[in-house]
Design a protein around this nucleic acid. Structure first.
Length: 283
DNA sequence: ATGCCTAATACGATTAGA
């Protein structure tokens, strides 16, 4: 089974590119972020014509997460337990379309779009840290419920966890988002909860994002911020991983590229998803 | 060439991204 994650930066602006990529790579399940539309605006027909069914969560023109799959999508969940909303200054917190969970062949998959943070000290930065802490807590709770669950958190984490993951000189250590100690600690806490980066062993170097501005791609001044983190029962099924850097080339690319893993379900010894799961479908 | 930002919306100037 081939599973991938891709911040597509508007699915309507890149429909042909995404569908062509799915067909060309034979990807079975794609988690998308920043679809930038509501479900009724999603370009469903080209995906369905290519043999993919969809799960879409979008509230407005911002954010938005989705799955395209040629295997059956089960048990969709909007958001996770305790997911905070964003409160604009002076406003009430509102949940944003940043998390969508599905189950495919007994594997629980999440498409996640971690808040950007904007700037150290910005309210959005505190929101980002809260969001990551809540995700950590929800994931620990989930894996405590089902220790053998094959689970993957896939998406745009907006954190460059290691020094070698930040190649954009406009991000200054100590003064920028994505590389702050707080963000890196929040990311590490999720790893400490029992998840592993299942791509890094197969793709030890490389970026997944290059800003559109300032010749970042030709200069290869990118960042590695898109990750697939798997539980132990997921990780033991992974037989390959890749960053598809070539997708940053050509006409009208997303500023992010796809990140993929291949699974061999024969290697999975876990019991899989619990059919009697009684969690709510919307958090 | 991989080339000096891009997308959605209120369809112009603003917001957001990282």
């Amino acid at each position: 089974m081939r599973i991938a994650t891709w911040n597509v930066n508007s699915v309507r602006a890149r429909t042909a590119r995404v569908v062509d990529w799915l067909k060309r790579t034979g990807t079975d399940v794609l988690a998308m972020q920043e679809i930038k539309c509501r479900p009724e605006q999603f370009p469903s027909e080209p995906f369905r014509a290519a043999g993919y069914e969809l799960a879409v969560h979008g509230l407005d023109q911002w954010n938005g997460v989705a799955f395209a799959s040629r295997l059956p999508l089960e048990d969709q969940r909007i958001g996770f337990e305790g997911m905070p909303g964003y409160a604009k200054p002076g406003g009430e917190p509102r949940p944003e379309a940043r998390a969508l969970g599905v189950v495919v062949e007994g594997i629980e998959l999440w498409s996640l779009y971690v808040p950007n943070g904007r700037a150290l000290g910005d309210p959005h930065f505190a929101y980002k840290l809260d969001w990551l802490a809540a995700l950590d807590a929800a994931t620990r709770h989930r894996l405590a419920q089902q220790p053998g669950l094959p689970l993957a958190l896939m998406g745009d984490w907006n954190v460059a966890p290691r020094e070698e993951d930040m190649g954009d000189p406009s991000f200054v250590p100590g003064a920028s988002t994505h590389v702050s100690p707080q963000e890196r600690a929040a990311f590490q806490a999720i790893l400490d909860g029992g998840l592993v980066d299942v791509v890094r062993p197969y793709a030890p170097t490389g970026y997944t994002f290059w800003d559109y501005k300032n010749l970042r791609f030709p200069r290869n001044e990118g960042m590695r911020i898109d990750f697939i983190l798997g539980s132990q029962a997921f990780a033991e099924q992974v037989v390959d991983g890749r960053i598809d850097r070539a997708e940053r080339k050509g006409d009208a690319p997303s500023d992010h590229v796809p990140v993929l893993v291949d699974l061999d379900p024969e290697l999975g010894g876990a019991e899989g998803y619990d059919e009697d799961d009684d969690r709510p479908m919307i958090f």
